[in-house]
Write a protein that binds this DNA or RNA. Structure first.
Length: 295
DNA sequence: CGTGCCCCCTGTCAGC
DNA sequence: TGCTGACAGGGGGCAC
């Protein structure tokens, strides 16, 4: 569910309330959300405090600093100093990360998976109905190796139209599938892939390597514009996604094709089509996004 | 290696 | 009203 704009919104909402907060206790209600035992997970975090909060693709990175007498570090350097770990959270389809202030009047989350009790009395709750999400603690080496497996950040300076064209050339996969592959670009999911392809007037089934010249430039611009605008709207809440404070994103009202099968194309008024491939729906306008690439 | 398909899980909604 | 099947923002594993 949550794609780059949704995760970015959550990251921004977590920075202030988490900064410097020490974890006093952890309750693991759903151990299947972890890649290790609840005991190991807890001992790596309890006693440590949150430092930097960041994002990589659709993942949240909650960097930890080992405490003076707690928060067993994930590893020790040869000189014995504690290496800080990073809590990496992937929200899957329905995950939420919610901060609850000490006397929060908001209703208790219905599907809590992990609760982090913090030193100021607030609670960070990982909530996930479908439990496709994962919480992992990585040491710096593992974090770097993991990050290297992901593609570039589409909003980073280095992500140019030229770089995109170069990458597209190496694949015959349908462009919509290509955009969803996190090893090629990090952070794009089904909503924003469809929206970007509509804006770029590229058919979702077009082979990646067939997108060249002007079409590449349009796709590059469209991707970045859609992601930035969605961040400005705090993301898209269709059902499960919530900000760190439980709010909804408002970009849903601005979607042009995603979820709009049969409704008029905003450009030509012909009905939006939906076809399924790669196990997911692609929404597009047959007239504005012809199968033959318009360069 | 690249690509496509199935599955993980729960909830919701359309159709009968 | 109740049952059944399709579908949902993601991603890992496996077969080809």
């Amino acid at each position: 569910m949550p794609e780059l704009p949704e995760v970015e919104t959550i990251v921004r909402g977590l920075r202030r309330p988490l900064r410097g907060r020490r974890v006093r206790a952890i309750e693991v209600l759903r151990p299947d959300l972890l890649d290790t035992t609840a005991t190991r997970f807890s001992s790596a975090i309890v006693g440590a405090s949150f430092s930097r909060v960041a994002r990589r693709g659709k993942n949240l990175l909650l960097h930890l600093e080992a405490g003076p007498n707690g928060g067993r570090p994930t590893r020790r350097r040869p000189d014995g100093a504690a290496e800080p770990g990073t809590l990496v959270v992937n929200l899957g389809m329905s995950g939420r990360l919610l901060v609850r202030a000490p006397a929060d009047s908001a209703p208790e989350p219905t599907h809590p998976g992990v609760r982090f009790r913090l030193d100021d009395g607030s609670v960070l709750v990982y909530h996930d109905v479908r439990r496709f999400g994962r919480l992992r603690v990585m040491d710096p080496g593992a974090l770097a190796a993991w990050s290297d497996c992901l593609g570039p950040e589409p909003l980073a300076r280095g992500f140019t139209a030229r770089a995109l064209e170069e990458a597209l050339r190496r694949s015959a996969a349908p462009i919509r599938s290509w955009l969803l592959d996190q090893r090629r670009i990090a952070g794009v999911g089904n909503i924003y892939a469809n929206e970007a392809l509509f804006r770029a007037r590229v058919h979702p089934g077009a082979p990646a390597r067939g997108i060249v010249g002007g079409a590449t430039k349009r796709l590059h611009r469209a991707l970045r514009a859609v992601l930035r605008e969605a961040i400005d709207s705090n993301g898209t809440t269709l059902r499960d996604y919530r900000t760190a404070r439980g709010g909804e994103g408002s970009y849903g009202a601005r979607l042009r094709v995603y979820g709009r099968e049969g409704r008029p194309c905003p450009s030509c008024r012909r009905p939006i089509a939906r076809v399924t491939f790669g196990g997911r729906s692609a929404y597009f306008c047959r007239s504005c996004q012809p199968r033959r690439i318009v360069r």
